[in-house]
Structures are given as C-alpha cells and as structure tokens.
Amino acid sequence: MQQAEPEIIFDDKIEQEIKIEPKDWMPEKYRQTLIRQISQHAHSEIVGMLPEGNWITRAPSLRRKAILLAKVQDEAGHGLYLYSAAETLGIGREEMYDQLHTGKAKYSSIFNYPTLTWADIGAIGWLVDGAAIMNQVPLCRASYGPYARAMVRICKEESFHQRQGFEILLTLGKGSKEQRDMAQDAINRWWWPSIMMFGPPDDSSPHTIQNTKWKIKRFTNDELRQRFVDICAEQVKVLGLELPDNDLKWNEERGHYDFGEINWDEFWEVVKGNGPCNKERLETRQKAWDNGAWVREAASAFAEKRNGL
C-alpha cells in the first residue's frame, strides 16, 4: 500500500494533465521510454543536417544559401534542446552520442536517403519537415515538462522550414520543363519515405497503447499519416505537380483520401541499417565527433587557463 503511493500520485497527475517534472517520481519504464524517444529524436535532428548540408555550398543563389544555412542551424539547435531535455532524465550527453555512433540508438530512417538534386531540398522542406511538424505538434502537450517545452520551441521554428521547401518547389514548378521534371522527380523519391515517417501501422506498433496512456503520444501513427496525406494531396495541386500514388483518391464516405499500399519491407530494411546512406551517415557523425576532439580539448584547456584553475 505504502509502496504504491507515488504511483498513484503519478497516475493522478497524468490523468489531470499536470506535467511531470525531472525530480518527480516516475515509473522506471516511463523514464526509459522517454530517454529512448527523446534521444532518438535528438539524433534525428543531428543526422538530419547531413542530407541538407550536402547542398549548402551549391545552393542556386545567395538567398537560398542563407535560408538553407539558417534551417540547418535550426536543426542543430533542435538536437541540442532535445539532448538537454533527455539529460534531465539522468542520461549523460556523451552516453547518448555513444549510442548513436555505435548504432545502438536509432534515428529517423528518412535521413538515410540521398539528396540527389537541388529539388530534393524543396521536397525535404515540404514533406520531411511537414511530416515532422505533424508528429511534433501533439508532442508540445507531452506529459513530461522538459520534453513538451523543447517541442514548443522546436515547433515555433519548424514552420519556416516547411514553407521554404514549398517555395523552392513552387519556383521550380513555374520554371523550365527540366526544372519541373526535377521537382517532380524529387517528390517521387521523397513521398513514400515521408509517409513512412509516422511509423509502422497501428496494428504493428507495440508501444502506442502504453505511450498514449502516459500521454506521451496523443494520436496514432495511422491517424497522423492520414492527416498528412489529406493535406499534401491538396497542397501538391498548388505546385502543379503530382504525388506518385495511382491509388490516391478522395473518399467521400470517409472524408479522407485513400492511398496506396506502403512498402513496409523497405521501411524495415532501412531501419535495420540497409538503406542507401545508413553507413555513410553514421561514418560522417563518427568522423565529426573524432575530428572535433581537439576542439573540445582545446576549449577545456583554454577555460582552465582563463579561469586560473
């Protein structure tokens, strides 16, 4: 009876939508779930800089370059907000980096696809950031305070990411035939991986029920995916382009768009590490960490000297 008391208080807070804060008692599984989710989210922001970073030096104008730099810098910031939120749960920063570099921790599979043309930067902003926003907005109400606060900050910054991507595609769509084809090709390659970003279908998503009970998750993977498809199916018309799905059709009865079968085999292959860029992404992160060692040491040495330690 006495042992159960903190659990009752915890459940009661969740029930009443009172945020859980770092020093509050929480079930060990809640803590572990959050550490896993927040750190994987942080890793996704950090690895997510790589496909876009690929185009910074080759952006077609100074305006586009400044925008892309600002966007990629935001993603670095998002990673940092989230790492520090995860640290409030008792995991160390370097421990998380280590989990990323050794492949123990996952990051969003979408970043294991290559950015082949400038139009990919448009498609990423529109679709990948778009799907991320759809996932992230409900997380602003997640039951764990530091996570929810980090998400509020992130969501405020995300909307320009999606708009700049859409604008790139809009511009290409009004351009030459070659430019239109390039935009369409980028959408063709990014569409399916983007709708996979919501995760496996509800009937094979084992954590959904518990995470919903804990109010970490507010909507199921399929609910969010459907909402995203409905929005994109309309937005693509403004671009004068198409989504690569012959089964995409408005369903009057459901009040939603029907869409084609998702290739979940591909999804699980990429999760397992067999996507087009998994190896390259991890190697790049590991190299950045190793090559940064002297900077970290120099900063520590300089701090000691400056502070007379």
């Binding site: 940092l80 907000y81 520090s84 939120a85 640290e87 920063r93 606060r149 980090a150 900050r153 970290r296 900063a299 520590s300 300089f302 701090a303 400056r306 502070n307």
Partner: peptide
Amino acid sequence: HVGSLHAADAQM
C-alpha cells in the same frame, strides 16, 4: 529559464 547546454566555462 530556457534550457541548458554544455560548455567549458561560463563565457563559452
């Protein structure tokens, strides 16, 4: 309070 970060000293 807005969050936290790692740095070698106060100025950094």
